[in-house]
Design a protein around this nucleic acid. Structure first.
Lengths: 144, 144
DNA sequence: CAAGGTCGTCAGATTCTCTGACCAAATTGT
DNA sequence: ACAATTTGGTCAGAGAATCTGACGACCTTG
């Protein structure tokens, strides 16, 4: 089986688990597309352009999804003090709650995987994927 | 960085590279959504239902995408001799050509990754991902 | 300070994907 | 053997996600 597909399967499983956990915690209105932007927001806020680069969609798409997240109360847009053109997407209280739910589930899944593989192989997996970023992460090129 | 995201990055990179190779080889009309179904067609043909399970979309979506692939000349639908309800999606000549292009590029990328990680770690990566399928692959549950 | 680049948004169109309903064929249970 | 249920595929319609192109506001460079 090709490695692309082997990457897809656990990636998608992780996504599904987190979406299910969010829905179970009352965040069922969050869509997968919204979550793919939401999960990339930095603790101190992120620019739409950065979110677009990381999620690998256009900034227009991010704009639409951030609109939705804002209307649903998960994020706010604030001016970027360092750049008059830019705005920062930041979490609201509700957004932080969703974050906690999502991150907890991620940790649980990772623990499950580590249990399956053993700690050494899990670490090796993480390290290998991290190293591949130098070849595969388009966002690695210029961000701070 | 969470493992889900670490999986996403190379997964997406592989996809992009293959799509670019296909476009360069004259298969630029293939869309990403079509390719995600196309790549899962078995050499002897696949049922739409199986493709849907593997690609993790509904069978209706697969139906639409197979229609498009068929109109573009990449696949054909033939009756499944073992089940009167079912039809098999099979490659045409053109489809096989695209397959060769895609698979060659996949091999090149995998070689590049193996070069980066070294053969042992690349094998370990593949083995770990394969083992995670027992926890993460919904398609593993029932298929023949 | 002029020229060019970047950030975000608006507008419009296309593509993708889903839910619900349906028929035909296979499978199951009686 | 046959009714009931399940499974495979399609049709129809709606909704969501995504893209391209154009634009004004602001930053950066020379």
């Amino acid at each position: 089986m090709n490695v692309g597909t082997l990457l897809f399967i656990p990636y998608r499983a992780m996504e599904s688990e987190v979406m299910a956990a969010l829905a179970a915690a009352g965040h069922g209105e969050l869509t997968l597309a919204q979550a793919r932007v939401f999960q990339r927001i930095a603790p101190g806020g992120s620019r739409p352009t950065d979110l677009a680069d990381q999620a690998q969609v256009t900034k227009q798409t991010v704009g639409v999804l951030v609109d939705q997240l804002q209307r649903a109360g998960y994020v706010r847009r604030v001016p970027d003090p360092t750049d008059g053109r830019a705005r920062l997407v930041v979490f609201t209280e509700l957004g932080l709650e969703a974050c906690v739910v999502a991150n907890s589930r991620v940790e649980e899944i990772e623990a499950l995987w580590a249990e399956r593989l053993g700690p050494e192989r899990m670490t090796a997996l993480r390290d290998a994927l991290t190293e591949l970023r130098t070849l595969t992460d388009p966002y690695l090129d210029d961000p701070g």
